[in-house]
């Protein structure tokens, strides 16, 4: 019995680290995540996977400012087509009202933020999300989110694709390096790596939080 405990002891710290990384890459009801990075860095999928687990309980809303959101990706994340509602508007006058209304009745909200939205409006919406216990993901189209609004801030650092070569193969798997900060990381900036093969929920790659990227954008 004693020998058995000794044999598993070295593994324990790794498990703790994994659990911590998975805790970071999740949203509880009423928590807000913010995403920063250019299109192509994997943030749409990462952000949606944060609220995807709530699709089993109700409907999710995607506020599509660019008009480019594709539900195919949501379906691949396991979200029922009937439970994925896309709202397309780039009107900054009504944007806050729309997000506020969605927070009242949807189980999770992913909102792209158009240019020109005031910080005070974002803070008000964040407070409403906390009150209504609706998980919310903010994705600014340009610029940065104000300080203190989000529980988890994810900034894309690097993305690496597997499967393609010089004309052969096809995209198979993506590894995305994200810099995580905010209350979720207890004030410390952490790097988490996420693996995504497009067929299920994204998963946090074990024990890669301290690794550096092999390539930078």
């Amino acid at each position: 019995m004693v020998a058995h405990i000794e044999s598993v002891a070295p593994v324990a710290p790794v498990e703790v680290r994994d659990r911590r990384a998975e805790e970071i890459f999740s949203l509880s009801p009423g928590q807000i995540a913010g995403l920063s990075g250019i299109p192509g860095s994997g943030l749409t999928r990462a952000g949606l996977s944060l609220i995807a687990p709530y699709a089993s309980e109700g409907h999710l809303a995607y506020l599509d400012v660019r008009g480019w959101a594709s539900p195919l990706m949501a379906w691949e994340l396991g979200i029922d087509p009937e439970r994925f509602i896309v709202i397309r508007t780039d009107d900054i006058v009504i944007w806050s009202r729309v997000v506020g209304t969605l927070l009242d009745g949807m189980r999770g909200v992913y909102a792209e933020i158009p240019r020109g939205i005031k910080d005070s409006a974002l803070r008000t919406l964040a407070a409403r999300a906390r009150t209504r216990r609706t998980p919310l993901v903010f994705r600014p189209i340009a610029g940065k989110l104000p300080q203190g609004v989000v529980h988890l801030h994810l900034e894309a650092r690097d993305v690496e694709w597997e499967g393609t070569g010089q004309g052969h193969g096809a995209l198979i798997r993506r590894r995305t390096l994200l810099d995580a900060s905010g209350k979720a990381t207890r004030g410390m900036e952490r790097t988490i790596e996420i693996e995504d093969d497009g067929t299920n929920h994204m998963r946090v790659v074990p024990n890669l939080g301290s690794q550096t990227s092999r390539r930078f954008a």
């Binding site: 299109p39 749409t44 999928r45 949606l48 660019r66 008009g67 480019w68 959101a69 594709s70 195919l72 990706m73 691949e76 096809a170 995209l171 993506r174 995504d196 093969d197 497009g198 067929t199």
Partner: peptide, 11 residues
């Protein structure tokens, strides 16, 4: 086009 699908698709 095989899976995974692109997340952003222009109309």
């Amino acid at each position: 086009i095989p899976s995974p699908a692109p997340a952003l698709v222009p109309p």
